[in-house]
Amino acid sequence: MNATVVKRVAVVATGVIGASWAALFLARGLDVEATDPSPGAEQRLRDAVQAHWPALVRQGLAPGASTGRLRFHAQMEAAVEAADFVQESGPERREFKAELFARMDAAAPAHAILASSTSGLAVTDIQADCRHPGRVVLGHPFNPPHLIPLVEVGGGQHTAPQAVADAMAFYASLGKRPIHVRREIKGHIANRLQAALWREAFHLVNEGVATVADVDAAIAHGPGLRWALMGPFMNLHLSGGEGGIAHLLAHLGGPIEDWWHDLGSPGMDAALQQRVVEGVAQAAADLSTAALAQARDAVLIELLRAKRSAPGLQ
């Protein structure tokens, strides 16, 4: 498979992630064959695509992009039988995905790459029952996929290196920012980084150091602003002044390590969950999740536009 010849993408499972993928593929001028066994799935998908479309228009559509290029199939095999690339976003259950990928492998053309949006499962497990496991790859996006550029790409024990390279090239052709997960690990890369932050965030709330709102403010109005522009290592590099990261680590390496030893290990018990749920409800006030997402996405589009025009921040 070559990224330049992908014209038809199959989207298998069209929940929140799958629908967002479908909207992105359509906006990039591709034909999309979608499938999902849930009752009412087709209408929910079409509604979601229409909801996402204005944001995609603001970002710029590819020639020929149209929501009219979306077709829905009741049977998965019909959706993948002519696909050049398959993006699966089904439930996070190992046995389910292994069976689903075996079926997709049997029905999809020989040249098609089979990618999973799994947020934490191993590709080796997902490809276990496939006759052609070499074409099964990780293609893990970040929500919402039609806006967030990052996609984590990797393989399992039986994945062909060329399949990973082709998947990365295809995602890059869509305007995504693919990174290569070079070794299978639970949660991949970005989710592990998020989990480390979540762990301490829950700990600080659990210990009464900060409220939910304070923790969110500490990130959203502090380091989160820098992290939206540069990653942790480059930010440390800038924090070192003219001496860069070498200077910073020479002076703060010890204290940073000391902080590591003092980080918490909270348990996700019912009391902590309830405290966080109540804290989020209080912080959100009367804003619905839809309103919050709309506000987030509006600013995100402008941020992405600014990053694209700034040297070194692409």
Results as ranks from 00 to 15, higher is better:
234 M>N: 14
299 V>Q: 11
293 A>Y: 04
260 W>Q: 12
140 H>P: 05
179 I>G: 03
34 A>F: 07
43 Q>T: 14
23 A>L: 12
55 A>P: 00
223 P>L: 15
104 M>K: 01
222 G>W: 08
74 A>R: 14
7 K>M: 05
16 V>D: 02
218 A>D: 01
167 A>N: 08
313 L>S: 07
51 A>Y: 02
153 V>T: 04
208 G>S: 06
37 P>Y: 12
18 G>K: 12
107 A>F: 03
122 A>Q: 00
4 T>C: 03
15 G>T: 11
257 E>R: 13
53 W>S: 12
292 L>K: 06
247 H>L: 06
310 A>L: 14
281 A>M: 10
100 L>E: 00
206 N>H: 10
237 H>I: 05
256 I>N: 07
40 G>W: 10
298 A>T: 15
17 I>S: 09
147 L>K: 03
15 G>Q: 10
54 P>G: 01
18 G>M: 07
239 S>T: 07
258 D>K: 11
84 D>W: 07
78 A>H: 14
240 G>Y: 13
25 F>S: 08
87 Q>T: 07
171 Y>R: 04
302 E>W: 02
38 S>P: 00
161 P>T: 01
235 N>V: 15
242 E>W: 10
232 P>N: 09
129 D>R: 10
64 G>L: 11
105 D>Q: 01
302 E>G: 12
125 D>Q: 04
183 R>H: 12
10 A>Q: 04
16 V>S: 13
248 L>A: 13
28 R>L: 07
152 E>V: 06
31 D>P: 00
275 R>S: 11
185 I>Y: 01
233 F>Q: 14
47 D>W: 02
188 H>E: 06
215 V>T: 08
52 H>T: 01
281 A>I: 05
293 A>P: 01
312 G>I: 10
193 L>N: 01
288 S>Q: 07
259 W>G: 00
3 A>E: 13
149 P>K: 02
68 G>E: 15
127 Q>S: 00
236 L>T: 09
243 G>Q: 09
134 G>P: 05
1 M>L: 10
120 G>Y: 05
178 P>T: 06
196 A>Y: 06
236 L>K: 08
157 Q>S: 05
89 S>Q: 09
260 W>M: 12
258 D>A: 14
110 A>V: 12
154 G>E: 02
149 P>Q: 02
144 P>I: 05
141 P>M: 05
286 D>C: 06
189 I>H: 03
193 L>H: 04
17 I>V: 15
156 G>L: 00
83 A>W: 07
236 L>N: 11
141 P>V: 05
306 A>E: 13
168 M>Y: 09
313 L>G: 08
279 G>P: 04
